[in-house]
Design a protein around this nucleic acid. Structure first.
Length: 117
DNA sequence: GTCTTGACGTTTA
DNA sequence: CTAAACGCCAAGA
């Protein structure tokens, strides 16, 4: 097998990608929320690392994932530093100085929206 | 093999 | 209020 990125990880990373893909337009979530939903509440760092790898995959709105403060901490990791902010603005997300103003309003928590009942 | 760094978050001082 | 340490785990040097 000459696979490079697709066979190394496929548990945590793949789960992260799956959740991120489910984030509705105009909504955002946090690394910690995703980590918690996956059962690893303290592995929020890995979510961020997974997002870094997510650039190799299509259809993953990494711009909808921010930190707990609603701050666009990962904008520098995008192809263009302004890409994250611009994409959010296109979805009616109010961003000022890399900070989502209405973060609390548009926050999408997988633990609430995707809860298993 | 070890050590450092990191798209984070919580706790403690 | 701010600052620092810890936990967690993967990747790069």
């Amino acid at each position: 097998m000459t696979l490079s990125i697709n066979d190394k990880h496929k548990d945590f990373f793949d789960n992260v990608f799956d959740v991120v893909r489910l984030i509705p337009e105009g909504r955002v979530t946090s690394y910690g929320a995703i980590a918690r939903y996956l059962g690893s509440a303290k592995s929020s760092r890995m979510v961020g690392w997974a997002m870094n790898a997510s650039h190799r995959y299509p259809g993953i709105p990494a711009h909808r994932v921010v930190n707990r403060q609603g701050l666009l901490t990962g904008k520098a990791n995008f192809a263009h530093p302004t890409e994250m902010e611009e994409k959010l603005k296109q979805e009616s997300v109010v961003v000022v100085a890399d900070q989502i103003i209405n973060f609390k309003e548009i926050f999408w928590d997988p633990n609430e929206e995707l809860k298993i009942d």
